[in-house]
């Protein structure tokens, strides 16, 4: 085989392997077992098995649920995925963007009292980028967290 046809063969091989890998990944259900976070509904559905294991759950911070006590560094709130609401309790101040209605990914364990004890709260911002609406002061929102306590 001469050089040119060997190169073409290699090109076809590489394109097939690469294309096949992408196609397989788009079709496979691999991601269903390897989840970065669960929804509260999925965690609760696991029952006993879902307790006392470190997991991440994601939901929206429920309205009027945030209770932040700066003296004790105690943060309590509820998250909601549309079906299930779960109480969260954690220590330390959350990231600056934390507010009611925003998406959060919480890492921690679900206790037998159905309270999820978090040791990490991350914010999941959606893909919307909008200027502030009338009367809003971007960047100041997080301050209302401390003031509201």
């Amino acid at each position: 085989m001469n050089d040119a046809s060997r190169r073409r063969l290699l090109a076809l091989g590489a394109l097939l392997i690469g294309g096949g890998a992408v196609g397989w990944m788009s079709m496979s259900t691999m991601g269903d077992d390897l989840v970065y976070y669960m929804s509260p509904t999925e965690l609760v559905a696991k029952g006993e098995a879902g307790r006392d294991a470190t997991v991440r759950i994601m939901g929206l911070v429920a309205a009027d649920s945030v209770d932040w006590r700066p003296q004790e560094q105690l943060l309590r709130f509820r998250i909601d995925d549309g079906q299930t609401t779960l109480a969260i309790e954690g220590r330390g101040a959350p990231p600056q963007m934390f507010r009611e209605g925003i998406g959060v990914v919480v890492e921690g364990r679900l206790g037998s009292d159905q309270v999820f004890r978090s040791h990490d709260v991350l914010i999941k911002h959606d893909n919307e980028y909008q200027p502030p609406q009338e009367g809003e002061h971007p960047g100041d929102i997080y301050k209302t967290l401390a003031e509201g306590s």
Partner: peptide, 29 residues
């Protein structure tokens, strides 16, 4: 060239990662 074609797979997976899997990163705006 062969390596580049194979490496491109990871670029396509990166693009679709936010749609295929749950991620803290938002989807494409």
């Amino acid at each position: 060239s062969v390596g580049s074609i194979l490496a491109t797979t990871s670029m396509i997976v990166t693009y679709f990662s936010v749609r295929w899997w749950r991620s803290i990163h938002q989807m494409q705006s």
